[in-house]
Amino acid sequence: MTEVPGDAIKLPGGRMTDGVVRVNDSVRRPASDSSEFVAALLQAFEQCEFDGAPKYLGQVDGMDILSFLPGEVPERFQVWEDNQVAAAGALLRAMHDATRGSELAGRFPVVCHHDVGPNNAVFVDGLPSAWIDFDFAAPGSPLEDFGYAAWTWCIASKCAVPVERQAEQVKILADAYGLQGPERGAVIDAILEQQARNARFWAELMASPDTAPAGPDVLASRIEWSRRELAFTAANRSVFENALA
Rank of each mutant, 00 (worst) to 15 (best):
M1P: 10
W202A: 00
Q78P: 05
D210H: 12
A196C: 06
A203V: 03
G13R: 09
I172V: 15
D135Q: 05
D135P: 01
P109A: 12
R165M: 13
P139V: 02
E81I: 01
E229N: 08
L57M: 14
S157F: 11
K171A: 15
A203Q: 15
A196I: 00
F77T: 11
R76H: 15
F134I: 07
G215N: 12
I191N: 00
P30T: 05
L57N: 02
L42F: 02
D115H: 01
W225R: 14
N24K: 11
D145G: 04
D133W: 10
G126Y: 11
E168R: 13
D217N: 07
H113D: 04
I65K: 03
K55Q: 15
F37E: 03
S129N: 13
A235K: 10
D97P: 10
L143P: 05
S141V: 02
P162A: 03
P128R: 02
H114C: 14
A87I: 06
A121K: 01
G185R: 06
A39P: 04
F136W: 10
G6R: 13
E3L: 13
L230T: 03
M63G: 02
A31Y: 05
A174N: 04
R237M: 07
A196K: 11
K55T: 10
K10F: 07
C159F: 03
R237G: 07
K10R: 13
N198D: 07
E49H: 15
P142D: 03
A53W: 04
D51Q: 14
D145S: 04
D97W: 06
E72G: 05
W153V: 06
N24G: 05
D64G: 02
F134N: 02
R22E: 09
E144F: 11
